[in-house]
Nucleic acid binder design. Structure first.
Length: 634
RNA sequence: GGUCCCGUAGUUCAAUGGAUAGAAUAGAAGUUUCCUAAACUUUAGAUGCAAGUUCGAUUCUUGCCGGGACCA
């Protein structure tokens, strides 16, 4: 049982004895005591005033007296200031804790919850390489899965690969047109980048064609368009000429008209038509299209494998959209039978979510083809069959909030037993100082490039510091990777997932302060000490007096399990990151003030060695939860 | 037009309704005969605006202003 819980229970039993009122641990507000006051933990008395009908000061005195009296080995003193009851915890509590825990690692202590949790994350598209935004997703998903495992859950990591669709066809078309049979092997370009380049080429070409078509449209040449679209374009033209365009509202309307026009023109370009046709051929299973598709996706997967391995993402099960995109139609049928869904006159199927404050939502087109949400309905079913979960997390960016809300609602209305367990772990987008990353404008930060650059930076910094002269080249390279990825992962995980964050390529690559390398460095220093002296587990340290910083450190270390539980409950790796950082920070302060190897006496030395060992363990495990390795030396 | 999210030092991030709002960076000033100075110490600097609930509000409610996302 953690110290915080122990204190709460002690308080609640004191209150019970004093006032014959039963309070649960949750009714007691417990904080760490602010440094300017005497004490370690603080009970906020205001919350108790109403129920116990006494002044805060009187309550503090009575409860404090009672607690110190009934558990003298735990509480050594108390004071009451302005409605706060500050309790001092006996040093022996910490020394005993230290002795118990320094020897063993911390993992495996948690009791299994018996709960199954599925975590879906990463979910890449096979038309472009992984970028910075994906990295946040990958790190977050992996870390949350790890945290949930550590908290005693059975976890299954899944990935849904978006391997079909019009965007995939675009890369294929461009490759056919421009590649002359080139391959990743022949060019030496990583497969995912290779394919991504053709996607970009295709987009670029489409824009050229669209510009030409647009000029024709402006000259009233509609030869390239169907009658219906010709009509629409003419209408749009008339509409826009009717708008004055000087107010903001007008400008907005004009922009919308312009966008509609662009969309129609884009769709009429030869390349878009070809891509559309290719998608039809793909769905029809046309052999040469399927073959090309397999070949190009194969290149992409080879590239992804390299990146995934490097950044440490892995999955227990991978779903492919090409295999799931037809799913969900049966679910729609069931929904119709149950009357949850309804069919409109044109044959399309909808769900009415107006009662929930949302709109009507299309779930099946009138020609019977799927929309995005159709297959998500089907995939949800598949996932539950494969792993009957209590919770199913979808790690998806917050731009999908509406979509995920609808998905969950539909499944709930259909009465699916797993619907309530669905949770959208929504995270904010990563932005650049100049704003949102846009692949069309080429402002996307590529993951491979970014990691390379950080490795280079890590190598430079390490050679400046040079405490690893005896390392082989292979060991050095491993160290650089460890530091670079440590910096990157920590940077992306230290922020609350829900919040949008800004990545500044120049400034964010930092190895000082609140960063991964700072913690890695602290760990290396710890290990350096531990290599120089034997830690004797048998040594009795039970009755020693603690220095302020020793106690402060132990107080923090003792909270490890509570923090883990909290992080698991909130699906929030940032809670771990913040905690580990404060551990490292306090340790560094301790390190400068007190010597371990040259401690005042042998007992102190042993105590501090054990303290070092426990600190190193906590740092290693905590960083492990974030997917960050800590080096033995750096 | 509708729904949702976000506004905290110059900048990037913290803060289960609790005490004088924490860090990091950038700025200023220091600390290497001693376990790794990627460290440590000192210093200055912030809750968008206006009401409300409360003993107490960065946190909850409402309105406004500003930024973003989505739906149509």
């Amino acid at each position: 049982m953690s110290l915080a819980v122990t204190i709460k229970e002690a308080a609640s039993s004191a209150i019970k004895e004093l006032y014959a009122i039963e309070l649960g641990a949750d009714d007691i507000t417990l904080n760490e005591t602010k440094p300017e006051f005497e004490g370690d933990y603080t009970i906020v008395l205001f919350t108790l005033v109403k129920q116990l009908r006494k002044s805060p000061d009187a309550l503090g005195k009575e409860i404090g007296d009672k607690m110190v009296l009934s558990e003298p080995s735990l509480f050594t003193a108390y004071n009451v200031i302005k409605g706060f009851l500050n309790l001092s915890i006996a040093d022996t509590y910490f020394t005993i804790y230290l002795q118990k825990n320094s020897a063993k690692g911390l993992t495996g202590k948690v009791t299994p919850t018996g709960k199954k949790v599925m975590v879906e994350y990463s979910s890449p598209n096979t038309n472009k390489p992984i970028h910075l935004g994906h990295l946040r997703n990958n790190f977050l998903g992996w870390s949350v899965a790890q945290i949930l495992k550590a908290a005693g859950n059975e976890v299954m990591k899944t990935c849904i690969v978006n391997d079909r669709g019009i965007h995939i066809c675009k890369s294929m078309i461009a490759w056919e047109l421009f590649a002359n049979g080139a391959t990743p092997e022949s060019t030496g370009i990583k497969g995912d980048h290779f394919v991504g380049d053709y996607y970009v080429k295709c987009e670029w070409q489409i824009r050229q064609e669209a510009a030409e078509l647009s000029a024709k449209v402006d000259a009233d040449d509609y030869a390239a368009f169907s009658d219906a679209n010709k009509q629409k374009l003419i209408e749009l033209k008339e509409l826009s000429s009717a708008i004055a365009g000087d107010t903001d509202k007008d400008k907005e309307r004009l922009k919308k008209i312009e966008d509609d026009k662009k969309e129609i023109i884009r769709a009429a370009t030869p390349l878009m038509k070809r891509a559309q046709q290719m998608l039809v051929d793909w769905e029809a299973g046309k052999p040469e299209v399927i073959e090309l598709w397999k070949k190009m996706n194969g290149w992409v997967y080879k590239g992804f494998d390299v990146t995934y391995k490097r950044i440490g993402s892995d999955f227990d099960k991978t779903y492919y959209e090409s295999e799931t995109y037809l799913l969900g139609k049966q679910t729609v049928e069931e929904g119709l039978a149950k009357g949850v869904l309804f069919r409109k006159e044109d044959g399309s199927v909808w769900i009415d979510l107006t009662a929930e404050g949302l709109d009507e939502k299309l779930v099946l087109r009138r020609d019977g083809t799927s929309v995005y949400i159709t297959q998500d309905l089907g995939l949800a079913e598949e996932k539950y069959k494969a792993f009957p979960y209590d919770k199913s997390l979808y790690v998806i960016a917050d731009e999908q909030n509406y979509h995920m809300k609808v998905l969950r609602l539909i499944l709930q209305k259909l009465g699916m037993p797993y619907a309530d367990g669905i949770f959208h772990l929504s995270y904010g987008m990563v932005e650049l100082p100049s704003g949102r990353m846009k692949s069309r404008e080429g402002t996307v930060v590529d993951a491979d490039d970014l990691v390379d650059e950080m490795v280079k930076e890590a190598a430079k910094k390490t050679s400046e510091k040079s405490k690893v002269d005896e390392f082989s080249e292979a060991e050095l390279n491993e160290l650089y990777e460890t530091i670079a990825l440590g910096a990157l992962k920590f940077f992306l995980l230290k922020v609350d997932p829900k919040k949008r964050m800004v990545f500044n390529p120049e400034e964010s690559i930092d190895f000082h302060g609140f960063t991964g390398p700072f913690i890695q460095y602290t760990h290396a220093r710890l290990k350096s000490i531990l290599r120089k002296a034997e830690v004797s587990e048998q040594f009795a340290i039970g009755n020693m007096q603690l220095e302020t910083l020793e106690k402060e450190l132990l107080l923090l270390l003792e909270q490890y399990n509570d923090v883990l539980q909290q992080a698991a409950m909130e699906y929030n790796p940032a809670a771990i990151a913040n905690y580990i950082y404060s551990v490292a920070k306090v340790y560094n302060s301790f390190y400068t003030v007190h010597s371990v190897l040259k401690a005042e006496n042998e007992e102190k030395k042993q105590l501090r060695l054990q303290l070092c060992k426990l600190t190193a363990n906590v740092i290693k495990e905590g960083m492990g939860l974030l997917g960050i390795k800590v080096p033995e030396r750096m």
